[in-house]
Computed example of a mutant assay.
Amino acid sequence: MDALQLLLNRHSNPRLNEPAPAGEQLETIFKAGLRAPDHAGLTPWEFIVFEGEQRQLLGDILANATAAKGNDAEAIEGARKAPLRAPMVITVVAKVTEHDKVPRLEQELSAGCALLSMQMAAQALGFNGIWRTGWFAFDRGVHSELGLKEQDQIVGFLYLGTPQKDLRKVTEHEIAPFVRYFGQ
């Protein structure tokens, strides 16, 4: 797929089956993520991969966090099953470093760019996925269970797999409401 067409037709697909990317394809996806903008070469990213039975471990972590918030059994079970919606889930973490020229936000945005690049690479390889965030990304219990440090921040969970079916074409937005030329 042409790079420009890929960008102009980017879409998330929550309906994913086996197979997930593996081998050289998965390596290519990670390489794309590692090309994200990286001011001062801080490499502020970590990719935690859950596939196969490891998805159940992630589900347990999410279920525990849901229970800790006092949610009901249905919500807890929903959280436990969430990672099973795709054959692979990659948790993308901003590994933030104190730096006088690169603020925290820029490092988190860099990790977000890595996640988007990985999703785009997966789509270019014939896979697809969906970027999910939600309150789990900010829950300190989830962070602790994943072995993250205090300064680290989950920017999203990238669900990847083979699309069950093609989605309808993405709605194109008019450009004018989103663009302002300063001074005009």
Rank of each mutant, 00 (worst) to 15 (best):
A3D: 09
A3K: 04
L4H: 07
L4N: 08
Q5K: 14
L6C: 00
L6Q: 11
R10W: 03
H11C: 13
H11L: 10
S12L: 03
N13Q: 08
R15F: 15
L16A: 03
L16R: 06
N17A: 14
P21F: 08
G23M: 06
G23D: 06
E24Y: 01
Q25T: 11
F30I: 15
F30R: 10
A32L: 02
G33N: 01
A36Q: 06
A36L: 10
P37L: 10
P37N: 08
A40E: 09
G41A: 13
G41H: 14
L42M: 05
T43P: 00
T43C: 07
P44Y: 05
E46T: 09
F47G: 02
I48S: 01
V49E: 15
F50I: 12
F50T: 07
E51S: 14
E53D: 15
E53Q: 15
L57C: 08
D60R: 15
L62C: 02
A65G: 13
K69R: 13
G70I: 08
D72Q: 12
A73Y: 00
E74F: 05
E74G: 02
I76G: 01
E77C: 04
K81F: 03
K81L: 12
A82G: 01
P83R: 09
R85F: 05
A86P: 07
P87W: 02
V89N: 13
I90Q: 00
K95D: 01
V96Q: 01
H99G: 02
D100H: 07
K101Y: 01
V102R: 08
Q107R: 04
E108G: 07
L109P: 01
L109W: 13
S110W: 08
S110Y: 08
G112P: 09
A114G: 03
S117K: 09
S117P: 00
Q119S: 11
Q123P: 00
G126L: 04
G129A: 06
G129D: 05
W131L: 06
R132Q: 13
W135K: 12
F136T: 00
A137T: 14
F138W: 10
G141I: 07
V142I: 10
S144R: 13
E145S: 13
E145Y: 07
G147C: 01
G147F: 01
L148R: 05
E150V: 11
Q151R: 09
Q153D: 09
Q153A: 15
G156R: 00
G156D: 03
L158S: 10
G161S: 10
P163M: 09
K165N: 09
K165H: 14
L167A: 12
R168H: 10
V170R: 13
T171Q: 08
E172A: 12
E172L: 11
E172T: 14
H173E: 12
H173W: 10
E174W: 04
I175N: 05
A176C: 05
F178K: 11
F178M: 08
V179C: 06
F182G: 02
G183K: 09
G183M: 03
